[in-house]
Amino acid sequence: MQTFLMALLQFFIILIISPFIVGLMQKTKSLVRGSVGPCVFQPYFNILKLMQKEVVLSNQSSYISIIAPYIVAVVPITVAGFLPVFDSNTLMSFSGDIIAMVYILALGTFFLALFGFDQGSSFGGLGSSREMTVASLAEPAFIMVIFTFALQSNSTNISHIFDSMRGDIFFNYPVSSTLALMALYFVTLAEAGRIPIDNPETHLELTMIHEAMILDASGRNLALLEIGSFVKTTIFLTLFSNIFMPLGFYDTNTIWTIGFSIFIYFIKMSTLGVIIAIGELTLAKLRYFRISDAMMFGFVLALISMVTYRL
């Protein structure tokens, strides 16, 4: 019972923290640019506001437009159930491993792309085409990174991987792990749609990828899609932070240690969010046809990490 409660707690922590992380990134960017920027909690208000609004659908659309937002939202939420925050017992760990996780996330992308097509407008199709291309190019690097970690810890179960990362794996294979994490950074940027790959702020048809698909969404549909994208970003950051900085896994005996673990997790996530935001400010968005180079670079990094591990 206690482990179940722990798992539930971790699950809700990821869900609740996710809009905050995105808000924090926006705030950091605004502050560095010299403007005040919206409040850190603005994404929560956005979601609440959007929930209250009615949905406007195109008369060309079909039931895909109605179910796709739910699936897009529920997929990252399910994946959030896989990830440990401070304890390796998680809610959904019985039902799949890290390879399954990759494919579950792909299911979300699949329906998001279908949503883009459903309105019969040219923007949606454009966004879908770009999103599917970027997602496909990121996939080999992602699987290669996962293979590296799975071989290092001799398991594909996420909890196992996190446990052994917290142990001595990272120090046993420092070269391989470092390179794998560098590759994972590229994958994170691509999957979360951050700046060198995609700009989440603009609505220019030249640059947008993710925004183009959800251009026709409104009301609760848009709220669901936004929840999906927030949670997805948080998932990748959690994956990144809990492998890269294997701190914060404390024993769950007393309420104080748990609180402390959560606090450390929170600090790690915020730091990572700020780092990514500053990284976004220093980089220019890549031209669309150079994304393949970036993804290929990530893949080569993952490849080196694999071969150095194997040596």
Binding site: R290, S292, L303
Partner: peptide, 13 residues
């Protein structure tokens, strides 16, 4: 560049 990276992965292997 993409093809160069492909060549490079071959070199590394």
């Amino acid at each position: 560049i993409t093809n160069s990276l492909l060549v490079i992965s071959a070199i590394i292997i």
